[in-house]
Design a protein around this nucleic acid. Structure first.
Lengths: 273, 273
DNA sequence: CGCGGGGATTTCGCAACATGAAACGGCCCG
DNA sequence: CGGGCCGTTTCATGTTGCGAAATCCCCGCG
């Protein structure tokens, strides 16, 4: 088998199993072990084991009656997650552009990672004030406005589990007192936006709001970064409300039609033409 | 590690690599090798190899600048394929129900497999005439109305490549003469529906039409199965047109809005409220 | 400018484990 | 009842996956 020059790190069982996964998932219908094995030229014993493994992991589904395999639940889950995040990005982008103009500050979009926020989009017009955060970077939840906005709107159980972990200090101003942090999060939940002043990075402050999905879960968050102390409390409130408004617009458009099911139902009646 | 009783056929490298794939794809944002390795408790060397392999196969994407991984192009492709097939099924179901009532025959929905049609849905009301075909079964393209409908509407290059393979005989009436088959396919393309009489299974005839996706490709096909000779040519024509009409309805609804991009653009203007 | 640290590659020797031929078993069809 | 097709199981073999540790690379800091 011709091996590409730098294939030295390819794990062969994995590579072949992925071939099987691609074959089954991309053919768009159920297939038998025989079909997989003969189409891909993999001995049926091996193909059998891959199919088993893929099925157990939820990437394929196995119909015990007809012994056929097809795409599994996990593929749908992955598609849905990515679609939602992408939709949120698409919807947020134009609003973010408006916000950079309005506040002459960097506008950030981030998702929750494991105990962190991960920046998806950092929109900083040339010359405008900005922080070290780049798209792809991860920062703690408790030291950023983005993270506090998410923490304040996630289910209590989840936020408590995060608060029970050690809270890292970052700038000397970072809130690491759990009681104080909890109090602040309740305030955030009430007024709808989070503030952060020099707690994540020296010299920068932030106003952040969550973007809720159709289940009310804070899927992503939106924030403006400004030089520290550029905002009085009343300005912060105005900015917070402005951001919350943008977030609501995005949320509202995240769960649009209700899927094809409704469309199919509608179609059921209008049979003739 | 507690192994479930019948995990004997699980291939461990594959299992762990899928864990990595799920982690990266489901977290909704880019992640570093370190994050994968420490979150999943897999030594970084191993995680590195899995990430490489997954990336090579197109399931993940690797940003060389930041050394971060995220969901790859293949996941999107798979999601799109499954979504389209599922949409087609959803949309077809109610129409198929109507058709079974109208013709008191079995109604079939099938996708093209490798040189075959694979039945997705076989709707046969109790007591109604039906063939041996079950959901998941594969039949040759050239011996079924479903297959002929697909052949007639696929790109010429593809149908020619199929016609150059050996054509299996099934009932004695099966068309295995290439010239005659080609002639019939041209007729099918012109009038919009395909007929088959005892060519796939003794005693059964079929009227089939393609369902075209937004690119005009015959993604799936729809057919009614009836006892042989229950249809005169003029009846067949009416049934064919009726089916073609149903297929057009489904096609028309397969590529709905045009994605969220348009929506985002619309949103761009209405900044304030 | 040099130093230090965190993270990404690369190396390497060992034995775990993936492999596939062959045997088995069940099911359908003739 | 019998043959063949297809999924499952077994088993001996040596391939190759594994992970600790060493190395490299980049970047931030003094």
């Amino acid at each position: 088998m011709p091996r590409r020059p730098d294939d030295s790190y390819v794990v062969q069982p994995v590579e072949k199993a992925l071939l099987v996964l691609a074959y089954v998932a991309e053919c768009g219908h159920v297939v038998s072990l025989k079909a997989v094995s003969s189409s891909l030229g993999i001995p049926k014993t091996t193909a059998f084991r891959y199919l088993q493994t893929l099925t157990r992991a939820g990437f394929l589904a196995h119909d015990g009656v007809t012994d056929r395999y097809s795409g599994g639940p996990r593929l749908g889950a992955i598609a849905r997650i990515n679609a939602r995040i992408n939709d949120a990005r698409e919807l947020a982008r134009p609003l973010m552009r408006d916000l950079t103009a309005e506040y002459d500050g960097t506008v950030n979009l981030a998702v929750k990672g494991d105990g962190t926020v991960v920046y998806l989009e950092v929109l900083a017009p040339p010359g405008c004030f900005r922080t070290k955060a780049r798209s792809g970077d991860a920062h703690p939840l408790h030291s950023t406005a983005l993270g506090k906005a998410i923490l304040a709107f996630m289910p209590a159980a989840e936020s408590l589990s995060y608060l029970s972990r050690p809270l890292t200090e970052r700038t000397g101003r970072t809130l690491i007192d759990r009681a104080e942090l909890a109090r602040q999060l309740r305030l955030v939940a009430r007024r709808g936006y989070a503030l952060e002043a020099g707690e994540n990075e020296d010299g920068a402050m932030c106003v952040g709001v969550p973007i809720l999905d159709e289940g009310g879960y804070p899927l992503v968050a939106l924030s403006v970064t400004l030089p520290l102390q550029r905002l009085s409390p009343s300005h912060a409130m105005k900015a917070g409300n402005r951001l919350a408004d943008a977030a609501r617009q995005i949320s509202a458009r995240l769960a649009p039609a209700g899927g094809l099911a409704a469309m199919a139902a509608a179609l059921a009646g209008s049979a003739g033409h």
